[in-house]
Each structure stands twice: as structure tokens, then as C-alpha cells.
Computed example of a mutant assay.
Amino acid sequence: MGLPLLLLLLPASLQADHWAQHCAYSYFGMTQPRQLSAPEGGSVRIPFSFSYPCNSGKISDVKISWRWKHFHGDFIYNTTPKFIHKNFKDRLVLNWKEGTKNGSLQISNLRREDKGFYFCRVEMITERCHKQKWQSINGTNLTITHEDPSRTRRSNTRTLGITCNNQTPSW
């Protein structure tokens, strides 16, 4: 009695596995720079872009979040529900518009303790593959540089020297 029931269920389970495999092997990608550096007290934008199969069908409920320090690290930012980690309060801005596949996370008033890895994560519902989640594997390693206050700031004015045929123009 158990064998016929198993045979009846087998085609349905194979079909479900085929569907899951198709979505599992589809390309859901994330791109971030491997390394960025910014001065303490300054700000930085960590750019990201993501991709998903063009045959995913209608896309809805896209959520962007960021993790800090390691792949399974603390969440520091979520679009929905809106969340900003207490260490980054009033210092994070997500520059991303719904319907686009790229943006950046801006961190202002950088502190030494902000150094480390940042991982962008995307969640969405696709018509064909249903709920999908993926994030950068390597993340972006942010280093915070220390600006020496004893150095004097230089003016942004530059002298431009142009030569033509090894001669200095006479204007």
C-alpha cells in the first residue's frame, strides 16, 4: 500500500525539485568594490549593484539591507522595516530608488571603529522564483585613514602647465 502512494507522489516531488533547481541555479548577483578608504571624520559611499535573471517575471517587495564586519554580521541598515544600527544613528543614508539595480550606502562622520567589511543584501519576490535573498560574498573592506592635524591644508588652486611641441604657450 505504501509503494503505490510513493509512486503517485514521486512525479510531484520531482517537479518541485526541478522548479527549485531552476531557481537555485539562476543568476542572482551582487557587485561591490573589494576595498575603499576614507578619512576619519569624512564620509564614504559604498556602491553596489545587483542582478537577477531576466526571466524572473514581475518583481515586487524589494528590500535592501547591509551587514557589518562579516558575512553573518550585525545588520546595520534595513529598508523595510526601517532600521539603522545604534552605532550608525544619523550617519547612514541609502542612495537607491526602487526599480533600479544599483545605488550606494553613504556613511558620514566616519569613526575609526567604522573600519571593517560591509555586505549588501537584497531580498525580493519574483513571479517565477518566489522569495529570493542574496548578498555580497566578499563585501567591501573599508579602511579609515587618520589625517595628521599638524599638516597644513593646501589650497585647491592648481597651476596648470601646458606645453605644445615642447614650447610653453605665450598667452
Rank of each mutant, 00 (worst) to 15 (best):
L3P: 03
P4A: 11
L5T: 12
L5R: 09
L9E: 06
A16G: 07
D17Y: 12
W19K: 14
C23D: 06
C23R: 02
F28P: 03
F28S: 03
L36E: 07
L36R: 06
A38D: 06
A38H: 03
E40Q: 14
G41K: 04
G41R: 02
G42H: 01
C54K: 11
N55Q: 12
V62Q: 09
V62H: 06
K69W: 06
H70K: 14
I76E: 00
T79Y: 03
P81T: 06
K86Q: 13
N87C: 01
V93D: 11
V93Q: 12
N95M: 06
K97I: 05
E98F: 06
E98C: 04
T100Y: 08
N102D: 12
S104M: 01
Q106L: 08
F119Y: 15
R121K: 15
E123D: 11
R128H: 09
H130A: 10
H130S: 13
S136E: 02
I137T: 09
G139L: 05
T140L: 01
T140D: 00
N141F: 11
T143Y: 01
I144L: 12
I144P: 10
T145L: 14
H146I: 11
E147H: 05
P149M: 05
P149C: 03
T152F: 02
R154K: 15
G161T: 10
I162C: 04
T163R: 03
W171M: 08
W171V: 14
